[in-house]
């Protein structure tokens, strides 16, 4: 493919609470989640999306831009993306984005992708582990007015106009060919994400959003003021841009809680109904008695 033109990709990523360690205290009264109370990690399948984009860039040339919506500390996963090979990262943060459901989230992502683009490909993980809805990808594609290829596992071919991909479905697989621009949601089996490069990490360890400057200056006292640090980072292209609702031209009524058609009516802690139950010792005799009982009740034939 000598006449391959460069392909420009946007990757949409999310910092998620590590839901394996969730407790009741992380819930707020309105039923949304207090994300600050949980350890935050890079949503696993978003790393697969990033890897797919980096791999495409190696084949075709071009750029990889990573966009996330989240609180300022989501800058952590953006730095991770820079270390792994992203060319450019953008943080979408605004208090008014808070409480967004998937529809309001996809609207913000649409605005940001349109401002940062144009792109040939938009990639994201199939789903995020905090909700498992798999809705934001297709909803963002619809809002962008572009087609979608969900559950993408392998990029078979990219030409200047089309992408051919294999989709992993529960019941088998499918090979599809589609015009670009197109949005792909990527499954975990697609690839093994490359680790952060040590060299890139050394070069970009200071990459930061302005709200992190105080913490950085505590560690690096040679920066005498925020302005000095800002000038240093800007010059080296290490200042992570932060975009608010105004920056991306998002309409107030379409973002955050106000832009979310779904509302949490109530959240119940699960009260386990106590079942009439027997404790069986892990011994041959006790188990024999249990089986006899199950046979008697025609549960076991």
């Amino acid at each position: 493919m000598t006449d391959q033109r460069p392909i420009h990709s946007a990757v949409l990523v999310k910092q998620v609470p590590d839901t394996h360690n969730i407790t009741g205290e992380v819930m707020t009264k309105d039923g949304t989640m207090n994300r600050g109370a949980l350890p935050a990690i890079f949503n696993p399948e978003d790393l697969n999306a990033l890897e797919m984009a980096l791999d495409i860039r190696e084949r075709t040339g071009g750029t990889v831009t990573v966009i996330t919506m989240g609180p300022p500390k989501a800058a952590n996963i953006l730095r991770d993306c820079l270390f792994r090979g992203a060319d450019r990262v953008i943080l979408l943060t605004d208090r008014r984005f808070a409480g967004a459901d998937t529809l309001a989230t996809s609207y913000v992502l649409q605005c940001a992708v349109q401002k940062a683009g144009p792109f040939d490909l938009v990639l994201c993980g199939r789903q995020a582990i905090d909700g498992d809805t798999a809705q934001v990808g297709p909803q963002t594609a619809e809002k962008l007015g572009i087609p979608q290829i969900t559950y993408a596992e392998t990029i078979i071919e990219i030409t200047s106009t089309h992408v051919t991909a294999e989709r992993a479905l529960d019941s088998g697989s499918e090979i599809v060919r589609c015009t670009m621009p197109v949005l792909l949601t990527v499954v975990g089996s697609a690839n093994t994400p490359r680790p952060a490069s040590v060299r890139r990490q050394m070069e970009r360890k200071l990459a930061a959003v302005p709200s992190e400057y105080t913490a950085i200056r505590a560690q690096w006292p040679e920066f005498e003021s925020d302005e000095a640090l800002d000038a240093y980072l800007t010059k080296r292209d290490l200042k992570i841009p932060v975009w608010t609702a105004e920056d991306i031209g998002a309409t107030e009524g379409s973002i955050g809680l106000a832009g979310s058609p779904t509302q949490v009516h109530k959240v119940n802690f699960v009260v386990l109904e106590s079942t009439e139950s027997k404790t069986i010792a892990p011994t041959a005799e006790a188990i024999k008695a249990m089986i006899a009982e199950l046979v008697h009740e025609y549960i076991v034939g």
Partner: peptide, 20 residues
Amino acid sequence: FQIRPAFGGNLIATIVNPHT
């Protein structure tokens, strides 16, 4: 009333769409 386990476990959320 759209009822589903939420937030990684422990909780059951009831979701509604009053306006749409």
